[in-house]
Design a protein around this nucleic acid. Sequence first.
DNA 1: TATTGTTATACTCTATAACTATA
DNA 2: TATAGTTATAGAGTATAACAATA
Lengths: 168, 168
Amino acid sequence: MSEPAARLDSEQLGAYFALIEVSSLLQYAVDEHLRADGDLSYVQFQILARLVDAPDGRLRMTDLADGVVYSRSGLTYQAGLLDKRGLITRAPSPDDERSVMVTVTDAGRELVAHVLPGHVERVHELLFAPMTGTDLATLGAVLGRVRDHMRAVPPRSAKPRASRKRAG
Amino acid sequence: MSEPAARLDSEQLGAYFALIEVSSLLQYAVDEHLRADGDLSYVQFQILARLVDAPDGRLRMTDLADGVVYSRSGLTYQAGLLDKRGLITRAPSPDDERSVMVTVTDAGRELVAHVLPGHVERVHELLFAPMTGTDLATLGAVLGRVRDHMRAVPPRSAKPRASRKRAG
DNA sequence: TATTGTTATACTCTATAACTATA
DNA sequence: TATAGTTATAGAGTATAACAATA
């Protein structure tokens, strides 16, 4: 509580702005490609990609919500769109009847496979092309540590609710 | 054209995911604070911050659009909100009657000043707390280089239009 | 009672296209 | 003709609250 007023020196400010700008530009480029090449928003792609990565291509709604989308209703909305397009299926979980298991369909896997090369190409071209091997190693290490820290730090306005992220 | 199919090794994938995750978490945290503490979206804060930083607190709409918002109409919308709240004023430019000069008001400066400490505090706490001085230097250097590269690289679907960013 | 998920609803934001006005 | 900006409009996405069902 009440630390001695944080400051950001100009080096920190520069790094902060660069981070925001780089990730914004990257996400715009990647989002644009996903929409043009697969009619997918970035959120939808992330959902599909997580499912493709999961064992048996299945995850519970709650597992998906943790880490991709901000509210449960938002995920329901996105899942509804993907379901309508036949890219996923939803069914009550046998283990826990409250839960819904989401599964990627073959069509979903094919769409991810179709879209992935161009996605990767853009990330490579924009993000990694101007990096050396040392740059990459450091960046990965530092950002990985920061991510773990962010995940560990309790949210300022600590809410008791689980799987929260943007609750206002 | 047609390079030999870009790939991302697992180190690159890890760095890419970490970057997206870190910037997302950071922006959520910061956005949440700005809304709670100043009823500002991140975009609105960026507009005000850029104006506060500008000579005489003034910029043309076009200058603001380059680097903050994606479409001219989007900026008009946001500027309308800020104008309505008395945080900026808009007036035709004397130099070029087509242009609109946007100026931060005192109220706008005060709001930025009010909100800035908490903003900085969160950035510090989330992003810089787990970094060493070397980390920071490297991160800033690498991300700065990447940003310049991104700004220089011609957009894939090169559009002739100026000040574009997300044109569909 | 707590958790999982959906629905209804309202709102914010963004983009497109058409338009005005100045260079 | 090209540039600067606004407006009308439509659509995507998100959050909140109320709800049903299961644990």
